[in-house]
Design a protein around this nucleic acid. Sequence first.
DNA 1: CCGAATCCTAAATGATACTG
DNA 2: CAGTATCATTTAGGATTCGG
Lengths: 122, 122
Amino acid sequence: MGVDHPAQVRLREPQDRVAGKWAIGILVAAAQGPVRFSELERRIEGISRRMLTLNLRKLEREGLLVRTVYPTVPPKVEYTCTEMALELHETLLSLVSWAGRHSADIARAHAAYDAGRASASA
Amino acid sequence: MGVDHPAQVRLREPQDRVAGKWAIGILVAAAQGPVRFSELERRIEGISRRMLTLNLRKLEREGLLVRTVYPTVPPKVEYTCTEMALELHETLLSLVSWAGRHSADIARAHAAYDAGRASASA
DNA sequence: CCGAATCCTAAATGATACTG
DNA sequence: CAGTATCATTTAGGATTCGG
């Protein structure tokens, strides 16, 4: 099974942000060691090639990933977490864990809330 | 000083998400006890009334906040964290702490990355 | 005091096809 | 293998105005 990413983090700077919808999946996957582009593509279910690229670029720009290109044929590119990213790893796991523990509660809360609104407009 | 929210979390469900740009600020503020709408408006710097309302509704729908209306004049509304939200509190603080510790690193990473791209296109 | 309604812009995401 | 380019849709966010 691919990494499911039940949570998403975005970190702000005055004008910028880190990451998008797939950031957690990428960072968690890369935390255990360097990962290749195609490996990420396989492990993160549902991500498009374009979004993977964009998220990788953003994470690299933020200093969370390092991109290493091996000038071989065929090309090989590895993404490695920086120290900074590894410091975040445990927190990300907490987030994922929390979301996993409570996904059913959240679904129930949705249903209850929506039911309330429906009866209100009836 | 208002709560600054250097980080932003969004939590996913199959089809939905929790929270937006201001979620952390709101949840952190509400974790210490019930907060009123206008209090949040004051403590979360830069938030518009509309976005505060929308984020509160979303958090309520996700089961992270409970909204209590006191039918007084003038009206009084309090938002309280649920158990589920309190379980997330520590993780959110970690996130905020991490972002605070590394904001300078991130800024440097941005600058370095952008400088690299500039020389690449030159 | 606590919103809702409307209008608008920018950003994120996705599908698809092409390339060194 | 590891991307880019282009096009389209969806969503988030902000400004402003109105109401119970």
